[in-house]
Design a binder for these strands. Structure first.
Lengths: 242, 242
DNA sequence: GTTGATAGGTTGTCTATACCAGATGCATTA
DNA sequence: TAATGCATCTGGTATAGACAACCTATCAAC
């Protein structure tokens, strides 16, 4: 299970292994997970190493520790997730939910004015449109249209997005590190197309999301419009006073 | 400096000791603080113990570690402000819009369980319900139900809220400074009552907003549910990577 | 039946040690 | 001069062991 010669730290491997079990619902909210000593014996590692994995997952809100009793899978609570900049995949993963993506369109398009302005590019410059249906399990959650500047992601059309995080891809292959984003969240009724793809009733409400994301150099690289099923998703925000 | 027989853990004492130095500006943003090994020698504790203090302070964002270089006092986060915590009045002012509020209800009520939990108060303790219709000009924008712990705002019932900011009132008269809040934003169809008060068509979408706000001492003081007209309002958020 | 002690589980804290990995300055070398 | 390598700082990871604090079930004493 754990590879001690791996470039990744043992505690990190264990951490992700546990996260997987939670995401896959093998361990469900409220469940008591193996004790620190059990984990250390099972994987032949020190208790402190196992403990580091549990500590970090506890800080992330996925686990809940009670002295004298044990460590439990946290209820999918609303406390931790702030407004981190993540893609859908990471967002769902952090909430302890397994997600998939199904690509509907991946093509070069003439960029709409809205996109031009958001990405600060000139007219006639092509953009890549990546449209995906987002699901958890078999349930569609959101319809997402993502526009990227073609010049910056030329080989993107050859990628396979099924089950892959776009943001990870951008970081690893295109030297684009998402750093901050501006987002607008509004409510609306679903369109005909959304109704069918999201498998919801006519006249159902959706959360409409518009996002411009910026890279490490402050350049906008992504403009995304999403429609989330209102019955399956709420947007979480942490507000701070200045 | 550190008392090993104290009821408080050593790492915690050290943590607070370091926090004091930072708060008192003895160690300033950007400063290199003593290394883990230096701390462990200076206070005659194990390096791992000193490390635990630094780790937690790093997680809290007060310190910044760089492998090979050392541990630094973090810069007072500039890009931290995700979304500003403001009341409706300030929110609208930021958007350059004049707003009004029309009080529909201001009364003592038995607190619903949801409110109890959010405000962390015991059952049977009364809460104040302040329900207001928010308008810009003559147009209704939102319906807002705000719950406050009665014990903390005893004389609130005598206040006049027409055109006054609740948050300003709390700051000036009740020693409650809104500091941060957790908010959920979802979409829904309007209820019958909302339809009439907001002057919208039947089956119109609304943005549903739930907020728990905390004061300068970390105590929750407000739980608010709002319904915003989807055609007049979008929620703005700034997302940052961590 | 109620109370109380206890045994054995859990996480929490702390120590001492070791080695790895990144950063840096300096002496050595080409 | 420029490059190389090494010593020695730094934080990062991992181990093994000890005891404290806390929780629960069980069993004995009242």
């Amino acid at each position: 299970m754990l590879n001690k010669n791996y470039p990744l730290p043992i505690y990190y491997q264990l951490k992700e292994l546990i996260r997987e079990k939670i995401v896959a619902r093998e361990w469900q909210p409220g469940d008591l997970i193996p004790s620190e000593r059990e984990l250390s014996e099972q994987y032949d590692i020190s208790r402190m190493t196992a403990r580091q994995a549990l500590t970090e997952l506890t800080n992330e809100g996925l686990l809940h520790r009670v002295q004298g009793k044990g460590t439990f899978v946290a209820e999918p609570k609303i406390e931790q997730p702030l407004t981190r900049l993540t893609g859908f995949t990471e967002d769902m993963r952090m909430r302890g939910v397994q997600s998939k993506g199904h690509v509907l369109r991946l093509e070069l398009v003439a960029s709409p004015t809205l996109v031009l302005r958001a990405l600060r590019i000139m007219p006639n410059q092509p953009v890549v449109l990546l449209e995906r249906l987002r699901l958890t399990g078999a349930d569609p959650i959101a319809l997402e249209a993502c526009y990227l500047h073609f010049n910056r992601v030329q080989s993107l059309m050859q990628e396979n997005f099924e089950g892959i995080s776009l943001y990870n891809l951008l970081i690893e292959k295109y030297d684009i590190t998402p750093t901050r984003a501006e987002q607008q969240v509004g409510a609306d009724l679903c369109s005909r197309r959304e109704q069918e793809l999201l498998n919801i009733a006519k006249g159902s409400p959706v959360l409409r999301n518009k996002r411009v994301a910026f890279d490490q150099r402050g350049q906008p690289f992504e403009y995304t419009e999403s429609a989330y099923r209102a019955d399956r998703y709420v947007f979480q925000a942490e507000l701070v006073a200045l």
